[in-house]
Design a binder for these strands. Structure first.
Lengths: 336, 336
DNA sequence: TTGTTTCATGTTAGCGCTAACATGAGGCGA
DNA sequence: TCGCCTCATGTTAGCGCTAACATGAAACAA
């Protein structure tokens, strides 16, 4: 049982030590070392100790690339998000990776940046790494992307929405209904001139449709829709472009807070309850920040991390319900 | 030049088609297909067209796992962050992945959750996938982690700090100096009772030391230090635990904004300039939100995405300067 | 012509590991 | 005692691809 430590990580060639180098040092065959790494119970205690010592001596780190090729299991999951620099998707990635990492799965992360052709390229790039599942925010923007995923023969989880024809599994909520719920609430509050601010990505657009349809169904004029680019800054000035509006649904809390800031400057924000607000504001996402500002932000609360954890679960289990509606909640505070 | 499309993605065995299946269909050898994928210029146009048709017919997706094993190049980079659900690190991940993805590198993401043993486990997990570089926020918390990285013989980039003995490359800023800069500013403003709120992670602690040392050097009493857990909620109530304090440095903007909310409730926040504030508040991170609230938040601005892009560059270039100080900027607005 | 170069393509071996199937030693019931 | 089972370990082949080294045809200079 040698405990002499050679220059670690350095085989004869200066390359990382391999299974068979460990095997030679421990005086066993490669497969025994492999078993010590993966199924230690199958190896006699003394042999195991000898192998473990050899691994330590050499600073052996298993090569999962080779292991994956031999076993046809990569223990990895591909994750595609529009952007990670959006706390709401970051929560989802955190949720799923907290669930997957302890099980030995790695997360391969890719961003589409809301660009359909980049999305297709990233999807192909992910698939070429042979992940055991793919979790994405939303659904593929193109036919090509859909085709790629349908042919991949691995679990696919679409999140943050409830597509009518999912590729495989779904963990999300109904964005249309969220828009409806907000409009309903604003109408009940007696608001007359509604507006929607946010991006024109698929989910934002679905919220818009729900919002508009419900407003129209309630006999209001068609709400205005202001499409903002991804940078929040536009939201601050948004009010100037929406005169006479008395209620706004912002596609996310950051836009909502920016808009409120614009209202504050215009003297149209009260520290009182919703009923006192000249202009009602409802956000989506339920950022911590919304609870901290004044007036506190009313919002559609969505559990991004739960979406991630649920998606991870759908990834691991092939049977059972493949369409999970995690719902949303209209959280009413002081802004509207 | 057959254009008949067989059931895509389905070889004779129902498994994903391989290089040699494409080769057989195109009537060439495997290596020619491999060349079409990786070095199309080396292949005659007619042959290339034939191969590309065969790839399309079969729905061929190259297997990078096999390619990586054969070529000893994985085209992947391991990224370790404390948590991705923190917009500041998410910016860094976005920056580096925007730089790496177009070059064909994949990002393997892992989270330590500020847990040293999980960090070591994730580091080992990353290394076993043989990434061509590792980018991490901060430095390894343990000797073991440091050893693993030193022996890995790949570029290692530590970010968000400027460690004295880096493993390899560094892209960050001086957290100690940031603390000093804030204390200097508050002292110049005539503040007497300083306090620091934030976590006790390595970088937060470094900011604290700079802040404290400068306060002491200026003849002030030792500032108070309030250690908050990761959930912002504590910051709202923080004021109650810091009576008589007239200036606060918060380790991040979210804490700062929460603290300001507490001040607002206590009637200690003015909408006027910094000089009018009973209690000055300085944050760190320069969230968009800080510009939107009232009073606007003074903060140490750090470019998380630039850190990510710089780290990516350090990953690709072996020569040149390996220690890049991206600095920070004290942005003075109305809160302090 | 003859040798040399260039270009397009092929052959061979092996990356580091694991699945599947041996092998052989010891235990044990009848 | 024999046959059979269990347990620990080994042998063999191959995962899908690429590096490195052929090969052979056409092009071309001397």
């Amino acid at each position: 049982m040698s405990s002499e430590v050679t220059e670690p990580g350095t085989g004869p060639t200066g390359a990382a030590p391999t299974l068979s180098e460990v095997a030679k040092r421990a005086g066993v065959s490669s497969i025994t070392v492999s078993r010590v790494v993966r199924m230690p119970d199958l190896v006699a205690p003394e042999t195991r100790a000898r192998v473990e010592q050899a691994m330590r001596d050499l600073g052996y780190i298993p090569n999962l690339v080779a292991g994956a090729l031999a076993s046809a299991r990569t223990n990895s999951v591909g994750v595609l998000v529009p952007t990670i620099a959006n706390s709401i998707f970051a929560d989802t990635v955190q949720g799923l990776s907290d669930k997957l990492e302890p099980l030995g799965f790695s997360v391969i992360l890719a961003q589409s940046r809301y660009d359909a052709s980049r999305e297709d390229r990233m999807l192909a790039a992910l698939l070429s790494r042979r992940p055991e599942a793919i979790i994405m925010v939303g659904s593929p923007a193109t036919e090509e992307g859909t085709r790629l995923l349908r042919n991949a023969r691995i679990p696919i989880v679409e999140t943050w929405d409830l597509p009518a024809n999912p590729i495989d599994a779904v963990a999300g909520f109904d964005n249309y209904k969220a828009g409806v719920a907000v409009a309903k609430h604003l109408v009940a509050q007696g608001r007359k001139q509604l507006a929607f601010i946010g991006g024109d990505d698929p989910r934002g657009t679905r919220r818009w449709f729900g919002f508009r349809d419900e407003a129209l169904a309630s006999g209001l004029a068609e709400p205005r829709r202001l499409i903002l680019d991804r940078k929040d800054s536009g939201s601050v000035a948004a009010h100037a472009r929406l005169p006479d509006v008395d209620a706004v649904f912002a596609a996310n809390d950051a836009h909502a807070i920016g808009f409120m800031f614009g209202l504050r400057k215009a003297g149209l924000l009260r520290d009182g309850p919703a009923s006192a607000q000249p202009v009602a504001v409802i956000g989506l996402g339920d950022l911590e920040m919304g609870r901290l500002i004044s007036p506190t932000l009313s919002t559609i609360s969505v559990h991004g991390d739960a979406i991630g954890r649920t998606a991870a679960t759908l990834t691991l289990e092939r049977g059972g319900e493949r369409r999970i509606d995690l719902g949303f909640e209209l959280v009413l505070r002081d802004s509207g």
